[in-house]
Simulated assay, not measured.
Amino acid sequence: MKSPLDGRPPTLELIDKDGRLSAFRVRPRELTPLGAKLADAISSILGLGLLVASVATLPDWRHPALPELAVAIGGTIAGIWILRIIAREAFRVNTRIDLDLESIRVRRLRGWERFDRRLEHRFVLLPHDGTERERRRNDLATREASAHGHVVQKPVYYGDSFHVVLVYAGHRVDLLSVYGRKQAASIVARLQYCDQMLEQEAKRVGARTNPHVGAEWHDSPGGI
């Protein structure tokens, strides 16, 4: 049977010495919109260089034969595709999120940031803050190109990106930014699942440690 923790993001379930659930370690490794943009730009530049090199190696590059030119162009397209995959993989960002019965922790550049899991909280997905700015910039570029008789379609990065957010006691805490709705949604779903499992375990632990839970009630004098 498939485990609920299979797939992305990589997640480790921790069990204590008594066999009880104690924590989860969630390790997303995803592209940010800026990372995706830089990766695509770098792969395009390298691809252009690859095209120039491919044409230059033709026997008669000034008047290349059609089959040889087709091979050069096809190889360049395949090379750009491979370069884009490699570049995007290189620009992925690792995020470390730990959840236990009492806390939620996220690793920042300056160290761990800790939040009390017993306070009101939830994990949500929000559109990236740069979405509207990118849309206006792309609309302007499209209108300017149209005014000169050109047709352009600008790539969308921030419009396809989302913030994975911890809403903590009424405050917004951005955990990470993710390029791609499917990837971002899978992270939120995983965090929600882990949080739910820990909440159930916390209630079981509370029931075991609270002597009043499950105890027999007796009528007291003057009781209703």
Rank of each mutant, 00 (worst) to 15 (best):
K203T: 14
D100R: 00
D16T: 03
P64A: 01
L101H: 06
D100C: 01
E201A: 02
Y168C: 02
G49I: 08
Y157K: 00
E89K: 04
R114N: 12
E134W: 03
Q192S: 13
E134D: 05
P10A: 05
R172T: 14
Q183M: 10
L48V: 09
V165T: 06
I187D: 01
L126K: 04
G111K: 05
Q153Y: 13
A65S: 10
I42D: 10
F115W: 10
G35A: 03
L46A: 06
G170E: 11
F91M: 10
L69Q: 01
P10Q: 08
R172W: 09
D6L: 10
L12H: 11
Q153T: 15
T76P: 04
G206D: 11
L191G: 00
K2F: 14
V167S: 04
R190Q: 09
L83K: 00
R117F: 10
D174M: 12
R62D: 07
R88G: 06
V52P: 02
P4R: 03
R117C: 07
G214P: 08
Q196T: 14
E102D: 15
S161V: 02
S146D: 13
V124K: 00
I15C: 06
E89D: 14
K182D: 13
R181K: 13
Y157L: 01
G222K: 03
W112R: 05
R105F: 12
R208A: 15
R114P: 08
